[in-house]
Design a protein around this nucleic acid. Sequence first.
DNA 1: GGTCGGTCGTTGACTGCGCAACGATATGCC
DNA 2: GGCATATCGTTGCGCAGTCAACGACCGACC
Lengths: 186, 186
Amino acid sequence: MTTPSLSRVAGAPAEAPTAARGSAALIADEPGLGAWRSFLTAHARITRRLDEELQAAHGLSLAEYDALLQIAHAPGRRVRMNVLAERVILSRSGITRLVDRLEAAGAVERKACSTDARGQEAELTAVGLERLRSAATTHLEGVRRYFLGRLDSADLAGLEASLGRVADPLESGSHPAHEGCPPGEL
Amino acid sequence: MTTPSLSRVAGAPAEAPTAARGSAALIADEPGLGAWRSFLTAHARITRRLDEELQAAHGLSLAEYDALLQIAHAPGRRVRMNVLAERVILSRSGITRLVDRLEAAGAVERKACSTDARGQEAELTAVGLERLRSAATTHLEGVRRYFLGRLDSADLAGLEASLGRVADPLESGSHPAHEGCPPGEL
DNA sequence: GGTCGGTCGTTGACTGCGCAACGATATGCC
DNA sequence: GGCATATCGTTGCGCAGTCAACGACCGACC
């Protein structure tokens, strides 16, 4: 009820445009829109909480935590800036500055890429790893409290399947005027 | 595979801390985490696309669109800044500036609240409504293409139920050290 | 009626991010 | 080899958002 709508309008095109005390009249309420709204609201509220908690307890933003994690998972604990940006879903400049911060904090070091002289790699330091480890407990606790804890395994399986199906086709294709839409309306 | 992890670490606490060419060793992979990752990735990718499209076609950000929509849905097409902030999930100052922009664009007008002299209400203008209407077609098309179109009605019902259950308890309660967590671990 | 704490919306200072432009390098074609 | 084009990471600039502080106002309690 107090979730962001972000959709639902249009409809009733031949409505009297008089500024009457309009209560309804432009709500469309297409079928799946409730799910869409829940999606947006859930994301906004949860990430806000998690970010606050991480920040308060460890001075890390969610994006920084994610970057640290991505580096930690990479072989050799180092990643090209390039792919890091893609994984964290940030622009190149965004990743440059984020790594700047992590480096200033001593959590990461920049190393030249051996196979491409243009390249830089971000490598996790020992303190970065320790930082990540302790942040992870806070973060996971939050994820459990706000997300996992409210859902049973069937819910989780459904979410993973549905949202994966939604996210995958958007992986990195450039701006498609219209693309993978199963040939329906435009 | 290229979705943001944002979790998964810890585990194997008594691991040799030598800087060996560590490949795994700190991945926890708690059961529901795949769903959590899909959730984050799907949101980041979809909202990025929708925002780009809205911006390109109508010069509106998603937040601005949402605000316009919230005002349009309110009785009398006006809302207190207060509740608008809550609905759009922005801070008070954020809403002040967002409404500044909308007002400068002629889409909204500020009116004093009749029952509370401190209050301001944002009221949708005719041009704002028209702006919203045309933006809505773009936006809904995108939502269909990237979200609704990939999901059948069972998926959508599942998403709405699950994500609603997750979002609702976070509605406006202040920072809860630990709160609604069903009495399990802390 | 006066005072005190709480809430309303706004503002200043700051931060994080995206876009566009840049030098440096890689790669393909002649 | 020599050149054109593309990609890599960084940077200047601008924008949108938060936090903290502010004056204005509400409501309750004395």
